[in-house]
Amino acid sequence: MPHSDAASPATKALARAKVKHTLHAYDHDPSNRHYGEEGVAQLGFSADVMFKTLVVHLEGSGVRTPLAVAVVPVSGMLDLKAFAAAMGAKKASMAEPDVAQRATGYIVGGISPLGQKKKLPTCVDSSALDHEVMLVSGGRRGLSVELAPADLIRVIGATTAAIAD
């Protein structure tokens, strides 16, 4: 298994929180830019239990910080209007990749909701609660972490809402 022994900020955060989890590593194809779909194909999990981590730019008077994180199933798309509403913002748009990378400390395709450089407000799609386990990025391309949705939500201090189409 590639890189499975090298700890990432995400795996260190889980170890610190003493959260039961399983790492799943696979060989990432550098030419593949569909990271979530690649993980589904490589690991054989349903696209409903594999989640992608998206960094979103928020606008509006009630916004504490201009950036926030959405965690949605690979099988769905982020509903920007629903996400803005869930975060108390007027408007939401996808953050530029370089902005997302600077804020989280991770590269696009390996952005984890765990162990981010700067703790950003996070909302996990409520469909996660329908599953015993979910998978999120382990902090680099080709590494996923399997854990209970309630553990992820607790460790990162996330809220939940229906934010995926």
Score class of each variant (00 low, 15 high):
Val63Lys: 00
Glu132Ala: 14
Lys91Glu: 13
Arg64Glu: 15
Ala47Met: 02
Ala128Met: 05
Ala41Ser: 14
Ala100Val: 07
Val74Ser: 00
Val133Ala: 10
Asp29Asn: 14
Ser126Asn: 03
His131Met: 02
Leu135Pro: 09
Ala164His: 05
Ala13Trp: 02
His21Arg: 05
Asp130Gln: 15
Asp151Ala: 13
His21Leu: 07
Pro149Met: 05
His3Pro: 01
Ala85Met: 08
Glu59Thr: 14
Lys117Val: 07
Asp27Phe: 05
Val99Pro: 02
Pro2Cys: 06
Ala103Val: 08
Leu129Lys: 13
Arg33Phe: 04
Ser31Met: 04
Phe83Ala: 00
Arg16His: 11
Ala161Ile: 09
Asp48Thr: 14
Ala7Trp: 04
Asp27Ser: 10
Val136Leu: 00
Ala25Gln: 04
Leu152Tyr: 00
Ser75Leu: 11
Lys81Ser: 14
Met77Ile: 09
Leu135Ile: 13
Ala6Val: 15
Arg154Ser: 12
Ala162Lys: 14
Leu23Phe: 08
Val63Tyr: 07
Met77Asn: 14
Val155Cys: 06
Lys119Met: 10
Asp27Gly: 07
Asp48Lys: 15
Lys119Asn: 10
Gln101Met: 12
Arg141Leu: 12
Tyr106Asn: 06
Ala7Lys: 08
Phe51Met: 14
Gly109Phe: 06
Ser8Pro: 04
Ala7Gly: 00
Ala158Val: 03
Lys117Ser: 11
Arg154Glu: 12
Val145Leu: 13
Pro97Asp: 12
Ala162Cys: 08
Pro30Asp: 13
Thr159Ala: 10
Arg16Gly: 06
Pro2Lys: 10
Lys81Gly: 11
Leu80Cys: 02
His34Cys: 02
Asp125Pro: 07
Gly157Asp: 01
Val99Ile: 14
Phe83Val: 01
Ser4Thr: 12
Arg16Cys: 03
Thr11Met: 03
Ala161Met: 07
Ala158Lys: 06
Leu114Gly: 00
Gly138Glu: 06
Val74Thr: 13
Ala89Arg: 00
Ala158Asp: 00
Gly142Tyr: 07
Glu38Ser: 09
Val19Lys: 03
His57Glu: 13
Asn32Asp: 15
Ala68Tyr: 03
Asp125Phe: 11
Lys117Gln: 12
Arg16Met: 09
Ala13Gln: 09
Val124His: 01
Val40Gly: 00
Thr159Phe: 02
Ala164Gly: 10
Gly88Ala: 13
Gly110Ile: 07
Pro149Gly: 04
Val56Arg: 02
Pro30Cys: 11
His34Val: 06
Ala103Lys: 03
Gly139Ser: 08
Glu96Leu: 14
Ala6Gln: 15
Ala89Leu: 06
Val72Trp: 00
Ala25Gly: 05
Gly157Leu: 00
Ile111Arg: 04
Leu135Met: 15
Gly62His: 11
Met134Asp: 01
Ser46Gly: 10
Asp125Ile: 12
Asp125Asn: 09
Leu14Asn: 05
Ser127His: 02
Asp27Ala: 14
Gln101Gly: 06
Glu38Arg: 05
Gly88Lys: 10
Ala10Val: 07
Gln116Gly: 05
Leu114Met: 08
Arg102Cys: 05
Thr11Trp: 00
Ala128Phe: 04
Val72Thr: 11
Lys118His: 15
Leu80Thr: 08
Gly139Ile: 07
Ala10Asp: 02
Gly157Val: 00
Leu78Ala: 13
Asp27His: 08
Asp125Cys: 10
Met87Cys: 11
Val108Ile: 15
